[in-house]
Design a protein around this nucleic acid. Structure first.
Ligand code: SF4
Ligand code: SF4
Lengths: 143, 143
DNA sequence: TAGATAAAAGACTATTTTATCTTAAATTAT
DNA sequence: ATAATTTAAGATAAAATAGTCTTTTATCTA
């Protein structure tokens, strides 16, 4: 459902929203090490997020990346949109193209509802809520 | 979520369960033409379904394929399992490996419920129900 | 200003998925 | 039996995704 790049992107944003990192510039290499991701590969994903307005970055000594907005203003859905694009919303279960409600496939009625739920889940999951959940419940971020 | 092969497989099974084809041997080439799929590619998917016990086949002149069981005994979930394997159930949203309920990721609570709903949808969608729905509502099967 | 540092950029490699093309094997009809 | 037909099998190709390696550019610090 989500690409590997997208998963890494979400993990990165959650990592940056934890109290230890929040408000600091963090090196991509240190994020990559903490999350067990290839540094150069993550570098590309991070840059995509910078271009998409989710992260900010600065180069050079003491450089790094940080979240571009308040935690409560970044939805998981934003991250998904930036990295995986709109295909999650356009493409569909049975791979039909140009689906419409007049002539749907046999799964439309149920899948349509599930999709709405999933979207809601990704919209409601703002980084502040996730970070709090991770702290309160001692949840894990890495693989 | 589902691979292209899996989508083709589901479409094929639905096609074979429509009144026009039901109970007949149908050539893969004719299925492929009707659904707009590459014949040789579909041939492999069909063979996977034969090996998985969803379809039966016979070679030679007047050969073809047909559904191995009663429509009511074939769940969409069976088709998915045979073609895409168990990854839909093992792998997960955030790509964690070896997820458990004790230390889940921040999405587990909601995603776990969605996944249960999706499974139920694929289990309840037996071919007889789908075929009836397609007939009653004049739904489409192809792209 | 010079050197160190870290993100950005580009070229390249590997793997998986999707798809095509060709040949082989089995079955039927003549 | 033989030829036609159709699935099975294997080799190959194309595309998308995932990941590596090297070079460039920007920024800070000394
Ligand atoms: S009909 Fe609905 S469920 Fe089916 S492929 Fe189209 S949008 Fe998806
Ligand atoms: S914790 Fe739950 S939702 Fe998250 S990756 Fe694991 S199984 Fe999936």
């Amino acid at each position: 459902m989500l690409s590997q790049s997208c998963i890494y992107g979400i993990q990165t944003c959650i990592y940056l929203s934890l109290p230890q990192q929040l408000g600091k510039k963090v090196r991509v290499s240190s994020i990559a090490e903490s999350l067990g991701i290839s540094p150069t590969f993550l570098s590309k994903i991070v840059f995509t997020l910078v271009q998409g307005g989710v992260l900010c970055s600065t180069r050079g000594a003491n450089g790094g990346v940080w979240l571009a907005k308040e935690l409560s203003e970044i939805q998981t859905l934003d991250i998904i949109k930036v990295i995986d694009g709109p295909k999650l919303f356009k493409d569909c279960l049975l791979g039909f193209s140009g689906c419409n409600d007049k002539k749907p496939c046999p799964f439309h009625q149920q899948w349509g509802q599930e999709r709405i739920r999933l979207m809601a889940m990704f919209q409601e999951s703002t980084l502040d809520k996730i970070a709090q959940k991770v702290n309160d419940l001692d949840l894990r971020i890495q693989m």
